[in-house]
Simulated assay, not measured.
Amino acid sequence: MRIALSACLAGWPVRYDGSSKLTRAVQELAAKTEAVCVCPETSADLPVPRPPAEQRGNRVWLKNGLDVTADFERGSQCALATVKEFGATLAVLKARSPSCGVHEIYDGTYSGKVISGEGVFARRLEEEGICVVTEKTVESVKPSVEHPVALVLGTGLGHLARLVKPVRRIDYRDIDGFPIDAQPVDGHKFEATIGTIDDVPVVVYPGRVHLYQGYSAAEVTALVQHAHHLGCRDIIFAGATGSVPGNAGTGLGIITDQINLTGTNPLAEWAGLKNVKTPFVDMNDAYSPYLRTLARGVADDLGITVEEGIFAGLLGPNFETPAEVNMLRAMNVSYAGVSTALEVIMARALGMNVLGLTLAANPAGARGTTHKSVLEAAKRYADDFERLVRGILRLL
């Protein structure tokens, strides 16, 4: 995988005051990938040191009053050409900079106040379809013993739990909010494992309950709440789905967005939910663009065929009718399933970073689809799924 970095984050003394902002998490990511360092400001031949610069409106000004908008634009175009030639799909930039700020920048008063906005260079990268994040994202998506990665696995995918070097096991019935009378469907197991996979701290949940079994939205998201309670900041959801013909094929997929068609929402019960401050949750980028880009990079590096698309969460348990498949196709849905959607809503309400992976075991609405055939499809893709997840964990 190829990434671009703000040179100051890699330790280059290119900031306005001649310093760098060396960041360990970014260093570690660069060591696991192929990286190119860029600085749009020095690419524009701006001197080091120089007065600090900030954006006001659509202009960039040095603190001494000099308008350097044209310099910043020229340097950004030069740095962009370097990134495109290198083939980077991800850029990690210095937060809040007038060149590299992502979603927030300093407001132009040189007071430290931050407003919504994009840096000149960040905007150019986004226009090219390159995923752009700051060092803060890389630092926040960093597994540790205190912040393990949670993996919630669905039908036929729970075998990943055998990779865990266990430290502790937890019966689901000991998890607060999980229905104590629940019985796992075939392909699920109700025992969480805390430990490591390839030395990465994880909590693996190799099964879940569903709305169609008669449980509430709060109950089917109890595992997410438990993962958050254990300190997990990053959560990977994986489950079997049907692929919508014309929008996606069978096989492994990365979920980019979702439509909740279950008719319910765990946040409708938010008053009784711990650590949920408000039910009014922003669902933009519900599936982390950063994690999605890493997953795509891992798949490409390993030669694993992976598609991407929108997921529709349905109530189930029956498979889709032809009319429903036509509706989903018209809605630009690629994958249809009976889990994940509510769990993602809960994860976002708790401020977690989400990655959604799916195994499209059959074309949605295909004749002859059974639970057994889904399990058989999962076995065929087990090796690629395992390699993909392990690659993602190592990259984190």
Rank of each mutant, 00 (worst) to 15 (best):
H147N: 15
F178P: 15
L90D: 13
A286H: 03
E269V: 11
N318S: 15
T134Q: 03
N58T: 15
S76K: 01
D282C: 09
G356T: 05
G18K: 08
L223K: 03
R394E: 06
A341I: 07
V68R: 00
A382P: 11
L153N: 08
D282Q: 07
G246L: 00
I259Y: 02
P143R: 02
N275E: 12
F86W: 05
A360E: 10
V281K: 04
A7S: 15
A25L: 05
R390I: 06
T241C: 15
A336K: 02
C78L: 13
T278N: 13
G87N: 12
G154P: 01
G272C: 12
A31V: 08
A161N: 14
S111V: 02
T134H: 02
M283Y: 11
E54N: 00
Y215G: 04
K142H: 15
L22K: 06
V325E: 01
N275G: 03
L22V: 14
G231M: 08
M331T: 02
L9H: 01
E127H: 14
G251K: 15
R387L: 06
F190M: 09
K142I: 02
H229Q: 14
V114M: 15
P363W: 02
G156M: 00
L46H: 02
D198I: 12
V141C: 12
T82L: 13
I194S: 03
G65Y: 14
G65L: 09
E126G: 06
I259W: 00
A336W: 00
H226R: 07
T262E: 02
I115N: 01
G231R: 04
S97D: 12
V68M: 04
A7E: 12
H103P: 14
V344N: 04
R162I: 06
T33V: 13
A248Q: 01
C232R: 03
T321W: 01
H226P: 02
R387W: 01
